[in-house]
Design a protein around this nucleic acid. Structure first.
Lengths: 344, 344
DNA sequence: TGTTAGCACTCATGCAGCGCGAGTGCTAAT
DNA sequence: ATTAGCACTCGCGCTGCATGAGTGCTAACA
């Protein structure tokens, strides 16, 4: 168990190191106004802290640096949730100012704002589009052989995709199809669309359309394809700004990982509610072993959830980022829910 | 004027240096099968070439490196346009395979492909959306107070934007407005939309709508806003792969510049037809002074033009990139034009 | 007269040695 | 229990030095 004084010293070491990126020595600690002990005393405590694994030396006679265990202890036990400084709160609020009617736009802005405020990289997952429900279908012919299919969802999201028209199709058939689709499938969630199309709409479509097979098969493909969760980045390049990263090779690996959307599930605890901190080698990917990731979830309405994540060096300003994410997650939940509910 | 032999040596130096990134020495040149002279002779010629400013030394007794003047001469006089190697051609063609119906998707793919083939960064500007013409308007109400406005263009591009509905608006009025808009403004180019709305549609709208002012004013805003040219990047991180870039500070500046869409007009000769090569300090921005930019334009139909650009180190494989861009620009022009014409 | 061999010269690079200073661990005094 | 003192460690930056790649020049050669 850690004594009161050891706690104090550990906290000072971590706070100092987070700020300065320099190993912190006993003399330096002793000089701080909140420390009333001589360097020698501090050294003794530091030796103990090191023995217990909370801090490390970079070389035999260097100052101390927090270990991963140290950071872990810090975020688990020493992060009394604070109020966001007013300045940050104001900035953060600006995301929701102006006539912001679109979920995606708000999320995009949030990503920007987060990376600006923290100088780290932010990753925001939008609420799962597949849970949005169909508000309206329409099909707009472009040429003899192509048309664009449009799905508007209840959230105001618009999916659109050009698809080939079967040759010599009757324009009236297209209109019929759109009407039937709207009739039968409005209110259906996007991920159910395919199944429901088969189950319910198919019969009726077949009755009413001359060339049922051709038209529907080509149209259906457009429905199943993308519909992934949207990912929004902020400050991808901020990694370059961190003095912690100087090894070009490591930077490359890191960037590759972050950039590849398919790696995201590995570095983000997708689906987890609440606030999570992953430190250094706790990350699944070795490319991220010098990074920490802080995530928070938000909700939109009852069902949909999204994720906010900050990727930075292990020497990240945990206190600040945690408070920021906590606040933003609340704000997003509130504002986005208000939005789909159609409140003022 | 350069002698035959000086030309040969200059070419060898540049080609070798492009491949190896190492200063090339007289001995090395003399060993090549296409060089029949001793190192001493080569040295003499090199001294002349250096005097004329085509090559440089990195230090007193190093091999030679092409100067910017050297590269310039190389691209201006020594780039006999070649056929694309079959392997590359096949790869490039794959961009147009599969049912690719959407201009944007094709361009996105092209960007990817280019960066993959070259290991440099590619930037593609889509054809100016503002020149697309309206195929269809529609408005889909979402809640009591919001609706999404949708514009489909002749290219299959879909612009959509959520906008606030005036309180207590009559749904019939919305429908009326959409009908009038479609009636009056179909076929109008997006950049003319605002003006034409005022000139032609306004009068009629005013006659038919109870709450003309409210509805139109809030809807109009959604028309004027974005509609910029779309920018597609490929391999933004490829810069990190180039051995030429090792200075972290420079990399940061460079990335900043490339990332900022508003800097693009400065580094790309927007609007210029044909193929352009900008070498090192010929670039407008000092952050780019170690880079070369190769651009080519493409057309879609008669009016619209787009731009392909490759950003790489000065030590770029000009021959290959020029051929690639030349081919791709032709392919894009052909395929995209075919697309909007609705040919098979 | 153009080409080449030979040689002295230059300079980046890598390595060993060295002094400095920040910081530690230990011990003895308070 | 705390602290002053001191010897010790080790990273860092500096210097000096050997190495080798590459040059420029000169004189001999075809």
């Amino acid at each position: 168990m850690l004594t009161e004084r050891q706690l104090l010293i550990l906290k000072v070491i971590i706070d100092d190191y987070i700020e300065s990126a320099q190993p912190v020595g006993s003399r330096h600690i002793s000089k701080r106004p909140d420390i009333a002990y001589s360097p020698a005393t501090v050294r003794n405590e530091m030796a103990d802290l090191e023995e217990m694994g909370y801090i490390e030396k970079t070389h035999t006679s260097s100052g101390r640096v927090p270990s991963e265990k140290g950071y872990r202890y810090y975020v688990d036990h020493m992060l009394t949730p604070r109020q966001l400084p007013k300045e940050d709160a104001v900035q953060l609020q600006s995301v929701f100012r102006d006539r912001m009617n679109e979920t995606e736009e708000i999320i995009r802005r949030s990503a920007m704002m987060l990376s600006e405020l923290t100088n780290y990289t932010s990753i925001l997952l939008g609420p799962d589009v597949r849970k949005h429900t169909v508000r309206k279908f329409s099909i707009v012919p472009l040429t003899n052989s192509t048309a664009v299919a449009i799905i508007v969802t209840d959230s105001g999201h618009v999916e659109n995709r050009v698809f080939p028209l079967p040759e010599g199709i009757n324009p009236a058939d297209i209109e019929k199809m759109v009407n039937i689709l709207n009739d039968k499938l409005t209110g259906v969630a996007l991920h159910e669309l395919h199944r429901r199309l088969e189950q319910e709409a198919a019969v009726i479509l077949r009755q009413h359309l001359d060339r049922y097979g051709d038209l529907v098969s080509t149209f259906r493909e457009t429905l199943v394809s993308p519909l992934e969760e949207k990912v929004f980045y902020g400050g991808k390049l901020n990694i370059l700004k961190q003095p912690d990263f100087h090894d070009l090779q490591k930077i490359r690996n890191l960037m590759d990982v972050i950039d590849e959307t398919r790696h995201l599930p590995l570095i983000l605890p997708v689906g987890n509610e609440g606030l999570h901190v992953t430190i250094g080698s706790e990350n699944a990917l070795t490319a991220m072993e010098d990074c920490s990731v802080i995530t928070a979830s938000y909700r939109v309405g009852e069902e949909q959830t999204g994720l906010i994540a900050i990727v930075g060096p292990k020497r990240m300003d945990y206190k600040r980022v945690v408070t920021l994410l906590d606040t933003l997650s609340g704000d997003l939940t509130r504002e986005l829910t208000r939005l789909i509910r159609g409140g003022a």
